[in-house]
């Protein structure tokens, strides 16, 4: 039968591509380990538990945001409003905690994050505005409301005990990192086991096919963006735990840093593919590089430039290999 003939040649090609693709799949972990080794040898104080704790502590927030960003990128979109949502979450939590109680503050902030995310999803899926425009608009909108509501003043008065969430540790492990790990685990579970996760890949891979197969594309998109907003709100609460001040002007760099972390992890913006470990590893990679520069006494002004170079190199390697593979 001819079909076996056809599949046989397909297999042959995939076997030829095997070594390359498996190498390419592990390029990032390899780079990561290499950098760890190099930094440990060359950078004083880098390879200490205190420093590792420090790196985790500093990067967990972006990691949480990156997990949500990953989901949205797999659907073929992204979210520029996560920073505004994070700032909103920390300010609202601060206000409600000061006025009422801690649990209510956290709940309100999370609910608001979910709501803004769902609104993003509504405009993208039901109205059909592009993710870029939609989330740019909500970012500006939310930030605007926040400045009006607070007169651009920070919110003080959150009880000292709240800093457990941002600065506390269980043994050597910072609590933000535990929250990050939990979020990453949940994201992994969603993508691996749930119907929603599977549909996220399908919608990102071929929207028309998803629709024709009877999948409710709009609902999948709305849920994904709601989750993204929710995770951003979680990150905002952790941020409040670190500073104890609800700062309306904070978190402006979250969206681009989180997108950077995901793409450095090897996830293409075109959608349809991506794994959680990419977001986690991408976050940590950017984190250790910043940390090493810091320890070496390099001016912090250099850090964006280095981050930019890392994005180009990491994503460039990945894309180049993909291109070569397609030509075989």
């Amino acid at each position: 039968m001819t079909t076996s003939n056809d599949t046989a040649t397909d297999r042959v090609t995939s076997r030829h591509g095997w070594q390359w693709s498996s190498l390419a799949a592990y390029a990032l972990p390899i780079i990561f380990v290499l950098l760890l080794i190099i930094f440990s040898l060359a950078v004083p104080y880098f390879a200490t538990w205190a420093n590792f704790g420090n790196v985790l502590q500093r990067n967990s927030i972006i990691g949480i945001v990156a997990c949500g960003m990953l989901l949205m990128i797999i659907t073929g979109g992204f979210d520029l409003s996560v920073g505004a949502v994070g700032a909103m979450s920390s300010v609202v939590a601060a206000v409600v905690i000061v006025q009422f109680s801690m649990p209510l503050g956290i709940l309100t902030a999370l609910a608001l994050g979910l709501l803004v995310g769902a609104a993003n999803g509504f405009f993208i899926a039901k109205i059909g505005i592009s993710p870029f425009v939609t989330t740019l608009a909500t970012q500006v909108l939310v930030t605007g409301f926040l400045f009006v509501g607070t007169s651009a003043q920070p919110v003080y008065g959150v009880p000292e005990s709240f800093t457990v969430l941002g600065l506390g540790r269980v043994g050597p492990v910072p609590i933000p990192t535990i929250i990050f790990a939990a979020v990453a685990l949940i994201t992994w579970g969603i993508l691996r086991f749930t119907t929603l996760g599977h549909y996220i890949y399908i919608v990102g891979g071929n929207k028309a096919a998803a629709r024709l197969a009877g999948i409710n594309v709009e609902r999948v998109l709305m849920t994904t963006y709601a989750l993204g907003g929710f995770f951003a709100a979680v990150a905002g609460i952790v941020l409040l735990g670190q500073t104890n001040i609800g700062q309306p002007a904070s978190a402006t760099d979250w969206p681009l840093t989180a997108i950077a972390a995901v793409v450095v992890g090897g996830v293409p913006l075109s959608g349809g593919v991506g794994q959680v470990w990419s977001a986690v590893l991408g976050t940590l990679l950017l984190g250790i590089i910043a940390n090493a520069l810091n320890l070496l006494g390099v001016s912090p002004f250099w850090q964006p430039a280095v981050t930019g170079a890392v994005i180009l190199v990491a994503v460039g390697l990945d894309s180049y290999q993909r291109k070569q593979r397609e030509r075989r």
């Binding site: 119907t195 599977h198 890949y201 399908i202 891979g205 071929n206 028309a208 096919a209 998803a210 024709l212 197969a213 009877g214 999948i215 349809g272 593919v273």
Partner: peptide, 20 residues
């Protein structure tokens, strides 16, 4: 065609009626 390119053949066959 209305297939999802990055998904496996098995998953494409089951598209929209994935077993629980």
């Amino acid at each position: 065609f209305s297939l999802v390119p990055d998904l496996s053949v098995a998953h494409n066959i089951a598209l929209g009626r994935e077993p629980r």
